[in-house]
């Protein structure tokens, strides 16, 4: 998936993830901790697109998360966190795939399931930790490190769980070729 359709897909995924994250998931919250669907969709996108796109998507999605209604923290915190997540996950995934033996396929291959899980958990750890760290630096929510660590660990655990479903879903959407274009090419 290239160009505009990729952008549209990314936009749709991020907005949907945001809506689900603030409406549906609070009903499934565990101690108030909700899985970061937006973060996981950035991870998914990073696995199948190039690092540049993943970085920019992370920045944009984070910015949206920063200003969307329930948010009250300093804008830019999620943007920074998701930007780093997008960049790091995309870099590592691409380096991993480049190191794979055999000929490089033309299009991005479907990453192995285990890689998706690891990327989801790792991305969640990097993202939530960064977000918490910037909060500590800015003293945005004035909470102690202990309480912060507890929430971050719970969030990472929950994210890793949800990543098993969310990341493959996002990967599947990004690897789909839009049908009309295919028809056009065949004609």
């Amino acid at each position: 998936m290239r160009g505009n359709s990729r952008l549209v897909a990314a936009l749709l995924i991020v907005v949907t993830a945001l809506l689900v994250q603030v409406t549906v998931l609070p009903h499934l919250a565990w101690n108030g901790v909700v899985p970061d669907l937006v973060l996981l969709s950035v991870v998914g996108a990073a696995l199948v697109t190039d690092p540049r796109f993943a970085t920019l998507l992370g920045f944009g999605a984070g910015l949206l998360l920063d200003v969307a209604p329930p948010a009250d923290h300093a804008a830019g915190r999620w943007a920074l966190a998701l930007l780093v997540v997008g960049y790091v996950v995309a870099r590592l995934a691409h380096d991993y795939q480049a190191a794979q033996p055999g000929p490089q396929p033309a299009s991005t291959p479907r990453p192995p399931y285990l890689l998706m899980l690891v990327a989801g958990a790792g991305g969640a750890f990097v993202g939530t930790s960064l977000f918490a760290l910037t909060g500590l630096l800015l003293q945005d929510p004035a909470v102690g490190v202990g309480a912060l660590l507890e929430v971050v660990l719970a969030a990472v655990a929950y994210d890793a769980l949800v990543a098993a479903v969310a990341v493959p879903l996002v990967v599947w959407v990004f690897r789909r070729e839009p049908a009309p274009r295919v028809a056009h090419v065949l004609r």
Partner: peptide, 13 residues
């Protein structure tokens, strides 16, 4: 991008 994030944070804060 990173600088933009930091600027945003500081300005907003």
């Amino acid at each position: 991008l990173v600088l933009a994030c930091i600027t945003l944070m500081v300005v907003d804060r």
